[in-house]
Design a protein around this nucleic acid. Structure first.
Lengths: 218, 218
DNA sequence: TAGATTGTTAATCGATTAACAATC
DNA sequence: TAGATTGTTAATCGATTAACAATC
């Protein structure tokens, strides 16, 4: 199983493979060829074979891929079988939705603490966990050693909170704040989610979808 | 202002430019060079000039870019100044958060209706709008002609609901359901948001971040 | 064996970067 | 004018696609 020079574009496609294979598995499909899968996923068969081969030869000539095995292997590559203790910072509308809505345990994360700067929220139960005040953060981290933080906080708070969390042992961020988080510690990873950017992309597409308003000039 | 062969990667970067320029504008910065901007955005200066030139020459040699003007131009290219009447399907946890949390009007969208299949929810007020039953959807659309739908519904519902909505005049989807929505009408656009995939990408990164576990073999 | 489909190399395509003449 | 920085072309790099020999 090699793991050298896997490009970012391949990595970004892994979760999608994992999801499609999971669906097929649930539908009781046992095997699939790169061609069939390419049609379902709107990719080329070449690309699928190329992608999968970054990690090893999971297929069998003349047969295709065993879905159950491939799904399991990709899950292992992604690392869903190792749990990462996770805290949520910001229990507002979005934070609560994320806490309740994501299937963390199926994706390698275990939500262990929820924090909010608003003392009014303390004690509220979300996704089975009590909301704690931000003041408790330090003690909590020293005791429980969470490694991942989900940021559902305002744009301005993100650059202040993130370094504190790094000092408390956080090595991965899932960042929903409207701020481009970058951490220079080489052993800290960040996944920024910019819903606003996504909405603007939709806006662009809608705007430019109307049948060729202005064609022609150079 | 040309608009030919703008690649998807450039389009995906536009919202980010817009956001950074908006921030600079708020901080009272008047002009910026591609070099300065490239440092802030973690891109190359070349790329920025290349990108912006897809749409026209907004800069000035020896000076740089006027931030206020550039921000306005990119906003126009994205189309944030034209409002699209929008409905939200699914007023669960995530739907409510999206309704309350996004700044729709600043991004070219106006939320005009919220629908949920659960009759219990009818009448509830979210983001200033009453939740309606799915039964009212058809009448509502015929009367109000919304063009955009936000899907915060379960995976299984998406492929059923989407075609109905297209028939009712929806030409753009912001899809949060855990389903890869594809619509074959050429005049319908879809922006899929897969939070689960994003979380798995974080998982992959965290898993493969530990200092080079297994290096070596070919 | 014949048919199917992978793994993998080579060819193509597109996107990013570098360079520099144009010009403010 | 001299200095700065763009717009734009050319060079490089990387990712996707095509092709085919290997093999189940």
């Amino acid at each position: 199983m090699k793991k050298n020079g896997v490009s970012l574009s391949v990595i970004r496609r892994l979760p999608r493979y994992y999801r499609f294979l999971g669906d097929l598995l649930q539908n009781g499909v046992g095997r699939i060829s790169s061609k069939e899968l390419s049609q379902k996923m709107n990719l080329t068969a070449s690309q699928i074979r190329q992608d999968l081969n970054c990690f090893g030869g999971f297929g069998q000539q003349g047969y295709g891929y065993n879905i159950e095995q491939l799904h399991r292997e990709i899950g292992r590559i992604i690392g869903v079988d190792t749990m990462h203790d996770t805290i949520l910072i910001g229990a507002g509308n979005l934070g609560s939705a994320i806490a309740a809505h994501m299937n963390f345990e199926k994706r390698g994360f275990r939500l262990v603490g929820i924090f909010d700067s608003d003392p009014q929220k303390s004690g509220e139960i979300i996704a089975g966990l009590p909301v704690r005040s931000t003041g408790e953060l330090e003690t909590f981290c020293r005791e429980n050693h969470p490694t991942i933080a989900i940021l559902c906080i305002p744009k301005t708070a993100a650059p202040k909170v993130a370094p504190q969390l790094v000092d408390l042992g956080i090595t991965g961020f899932w960042n929903f704040s409207h701020y481009d988080l970058r951490v220079d510690h080489s052993d800290v990873v960040v996944e920024n989610v910019h819903l606003g950017d996504s909405l603007l992309t939709l806006c662009y597409q809608v705007t430019h979808n109307r049948p060729e308003e202005d064609e022609g000039e150079k």
